[in-house]
């Protein structure tokens, strides 16, 4: 008799040059569960490549944009659940997490499990709160100021010195070497992402990312540090390698221990020339390079599915050092009928 398949719904199917993590998450889950899993893709745009990758995603449904609100999302997920009987949902975008967390209990009532941080955890690590977060949890973060007016820039210059990193509320960062450049960056980023603007101390060094899976009780079930070896013009890792460094593991353990982080996340670290490790940003979901964790022996997406289903996991202890990922682009050929189906029916 065939074992009943686990049904996992995954977002972030935009495997483009600045990829969402969905396809990597699915590959990792398939590695572990083999034929005993059915993958439901949840998409926003009709040209997200994952929609058309039928060996990766069994069926895709479009879902409403985060701005449509929680009720709209819940209603759509109920429709999909009636057909697919979803066991676990894994949202992979920062912007959608708020809504998924808000409807987490409603989904649980339907029988859909998730493994997400709390709203408080989500907001505390937000980049506009990073400075306070670092102080509260005794973690090294760059000095920064959150400003709402361009007139506050001169005081930032006095406190942080040039060059400064001017960061948008949600995305984008511009390095400014003069007050004029900082003002220009302020206007550009505030027009695009709104206020506030984050003005951060400029740090140079080696960029390291750590994929972490927290159990929600202060333990890190898995920690895999990776150094970016090739970085795109958008700052994304196109190749990376797993590292052996107790200090990196310690910073991740300290993070999960002090925050009780639940779910996947990515710590963006800068190792400065004086060997200090700064947390530059905390992304509250799996990174796009998450398949490397499976390749290195700590399959974080599969572990998250198991934990969401109620399994208690023993934290991983080892991973392969020097395991590389090298991303590649691949032209997928499909027919207009496929595009038509997802465009017109919202399903494929």
């Amino acid at each position: 008799m065939n074992q009943k398949k686990i049904v996992v719904a995954v977002t972030g199917l935009n495997a483009i040059d600045s990829p969402g993590p969905g396809v990597a998450v699915i590959r990792a889950i398939r590695d572990e569960f083999k034929d005993n899993v059915r993958i439901i893709g949840l998409s926003y745009e009709t040209l997200e490549p994952g929609i058309y990758m039928h060996d990766i995603v069994d069926k895709t449904y479009q879902i409403p944009y985060p701005t449509a609100g929680t009720q709209s999302l819940l209603s759509r997920l109920k429709y999909i659940h009636n057909i697919e009987k979803i066991n676990v949902v894994i949202p992979n975008f920062d912007a959608e997490l708020y809504n998924f967390i808000k409807i987490e209990s409603a989904l649980r009532d339907l029988g859909i499990q998730s493994f997400l941080p709390s709203l408080e955890q989500l907001e505390s690590r937000d980049k506009i709160n990073l400075s306070a977060f670092g102080k509260k949890h005794n973690l090294l973060v760059p000095d920064e100021k959150v400003i709402y007016s361009v007139n506050d820039l001169p005081s930032c210059e006095e406190d942080l010195n040039f060059p400064l990193v001017i960061k948008g509320k949600f995305y984008d960062a511009i390095i400014a070497h003069t007050l004029e450049q900082a003002q220009k960056a302020f206007y550009k980023l505030s027009a695009k992402w709104g206020l506030p603007i984050i003005v951060q101390q400029f740090l140079t060094g080696t960029e390291i990312n750590i994929a972490v899976l927290g159990d929600g009780n202060g333990n890190a079930t898995s920690i895999v540090p990776m150094r970016k070896l090739y970085i795109t013009d958008k700052g994304k890792a196109w190749a990376g390698i797993t590292l052996e460094d107790e200090n990196l593991l310690a910073i991740a353990k300290s993070f999960t221990n002090s925050t009780n982080w639940k779910g996947g996340c990515e710590l963006e670290i800068m190792r400065t020339v004086d060997n200090k490790l700064y947390i530059m940003e905390i992304n509250p979901r799996f990174p796009a390079w998450i398949y490397l964790t499976a390749g290195a022996g700590q399959n974080q997406p599969a572990s998250l599915v198991k934990m969401a289903m109620g399994e208690k996991l023993i934290p991983f202890e080892n991973y392969t050092i020097g395991k590389l990922f090298i991303r590649y682009a691949w032209d997928l050929i499909t027919d207009v009928q496929e595009f038509q189906k997802i465009s017109a029916l919202g399903e494929l």
Binding site: T206, I241, D245
Partner: peptide, 17 residues
């Protein structure tokens, strides 16, 4: 101690990558 080397002259520092 943890530096990996090979006969072909490849050196890898696993702490820094």
């Amino acid at each position: 101690k943890n530096i990996a080397t090979s006969d072909t002259g490849f050196i890898f520092n696993p702490t820094t990558g």
